[in-house]
Design a protein around this nucleic acid. Structure first.
Lengths: 240, 240
DNA sequence: GTCTATACTGAGATAGAC
DNA sequence: GTCTATCTCAGTATAGAC
C-alpha cells in the first residue's frame, strides 16, 4: 500500500511553515478523497482533518478540484522520476522502455483509480481550466507527451513516425487510464494485458510500416491527423 | 438555425397536461443551456422561464443532468429516424451509409456542442448513472452501436469483422464528438474532414484485411480486444 | 504573508400543503 | 400535479490576529 505522497517528502523536508501547511491540507484531502470519494468530501472536512480553518484551505487551494490537479502533478513528477531513474540504470530496448513507461504509470495510480476519474470530468468542456484536453492543461500534457518522446529518441525512425509516435502513445496511455478506471478485474489485469498487447502490436506495426504495401496508409494517416490539427503542435499549444 | 426540438413535436401534439408541462420545462432548459451554458443555468432560472415553480421542475426531472439526458435521448431518436428514412429511400454503398451516419449525427449536434460536453462529464466515474461508458447508459450505448450494426448488415463480411466493426465505428464516432466539441474551425470543418478521412481509411483497411500479410494482425487485434472485454458484450451489458 | 473565526450567498434538492 | 417553504452545503467574503 505504497502511496503517492512520497513525492511530497521532497517538500516536506526543507520547507517553511507555509509549505508545511499546504502539504498537510493536501495530505488530508487525499486521504479523505480515497476514503469517502471526491464528491462526498467537503472542503470543511478537509480543513477539519488538517486541523486548519476553512479559510486556510481555500487560501492554499482555490477549490477541491485544484487539489486533484496538485495531486496529478505530483503523479506526473513521480512518473518522470521513475523513468529517468530506470533509463539511467537499466539497458532496455524500445519495447521494454515503452512497457516501463506504461506500467509504472499504472502502478503509481493503482490505488487511486477513483480520484483519477475526476481528471476526466471536464474533458468535454474546452474552456474549463481543468479540461484534460484543453489549453488549461497544455503544459501538463506537453510534459506527458515528452515522456514518450524521450522513450523513443534513441531509436532509428523516419521523421514522420518520430512525430506521430509520441502522440499516439500518449493517446493509448489516456485510453488505458480510462479502461483502468473501469477495470474491475483483480489488480486490473485486463488493462495491463491490453497495454502489453497494444504495445506488442505497435512494435509489429512499426516494423511493418516500412513495407511498400503500407506506405500509402502511413502518409494517409499522417495527412489526416495533420489536417485535423491533432499532431503535437495542436495538442500542446494554446488555441485561441 | 434548426433545432433539435422538432423531435418533441411528436409529444407536443397528442398529450395531456403533464406532458405539456414537461415539454415546456425541457424547452426552457435547453434554450437557457444554449444561451448561458449548463453550469450558469440554475433550476430556478429554468422554472422561472418555463413559468412554473421550482418544485415543478424537480417533479419532472430529478436534476439538471437528467434534462441533458433527456436531450441526448431525443438526439439519438432523431438520429435513428434520419437514418431509417435515408436507408429506406436512397440506395447507398457501405461508405456512403457510414458517411451518412456520421455526418447526420454531427449535423444534429451542430448548434449544441456546449451541451454535448456535459455528456462526457462523468466518463471517468463508472458508478455515476450518467457515465457515458458505464452501466447506467448501457442501453443508450447499445442503441447507438446498433445503428452501425444496421449500416453494415447488408455487407458481405467475415464474422469477426462483423463483430468488430460496429464497436470500432462507435468508438470513432465518440472520438469525433470530442473533437467536434473542441473544434473551433468554421462549421467544424476539421472534424468533418477527419471523419471523412477516417472512413476512407476504414474502407481501405477493410479490403486490405483479406491480405494474407495482415491476417495475423487481424486476429491479434480481435484477441486483444476480447481479452480486454472491449467487444460489445462488455460495452452493452451491466458489469457487476 | 499566514491563518482564524464567522457570517453570508446562492443553488441543488426535498417535504408537505393544496 | 403543482406550489411554497425550507434544508443543506459548497464556496465566498471579510475582519482581524500574528
Amino acid at each position: 500500500m505504497l502511496h503517492i505522497l512520497n513525492v511530497f517528502k521532497i517538500n516536506e523536508a526543507a520547507t517553511e511553515k507555509g509549505e508545511q501547511t499546504r502539504h498537510e491540507i493536501l495530505k488530508s484531502a487525499l486521504r479523505l478523497f480515497r476514503d469517502q470519494g471526491f464528491d462526498a468530501t467537503t472542503m470543511r472536512d478537509i480543513a477539519a482533518d488538517a486541523g486548519v480553518a476553512l479559510g486556510a484551505a481555500y487560501y492554499y487551494f482555490p477549490g477541491k478540484e485544484s487539489i486533484i490537479q496538485a495531486y496529478y502533478k505530483a503523479v506526473q513528477a513521480e512518473h518522470e522520476n521513475k523513468i529517468s531513474e530506470a533509463l539511467a540504470t537499466r539497458k532496455m530496448d524500445l519495447k521494454e522502455r515503452l512497457q516501463f513507461v506504461m506500467r509504472s504509470k499504472l502502478d503509481i495510480l493503482e490505488n487511486d483509480r477513483k480520484l483519477l476519474g475526476v481528471i476526466f470530468r471536464y474533458s468535454g468542456e474546452p474552456d474549463h481550466p481543468l479540461s484534460c484536453l484543453g489549453p488549461g492543461t497544455a503544459e501538463s500534457r506537453r510534459e506527458s507527451i515528452e515522456i514518450f518522446t524521450r522513450a523513443i529518441e534513441d531509436e532509428k525512425l523516419p521523421k514522420d513516425l518520430r512525430q506521430l509516435l509520441p502522440i499516439s502513445l500518449w493517446a493509448l496511455h489516456m485510453g488505458a487510464l480510462i479502461l483502468f478506471i473501469y477495470d474491475k478485474s483483480p489488480q486490473q489485469q485486463r488493462t495491463r494485458k491490453l497495454v502489453d498487447g497494444a504495445l506488442d502490436l505497435t512494435m509489429r506495426l512499426l516494423s511493418l510500416a516500412k513495407n511498400p504495401l503500407l506506405r500509402p496508409f502511413r502518409s494517409r494517416v499522417l495527412e489526416l491527423l495533420r489536417d485535423a490539427e491533432l499532431l503535437p503542435d495542436f495538442v500542446t499549444q494554446e488555441t485561441s
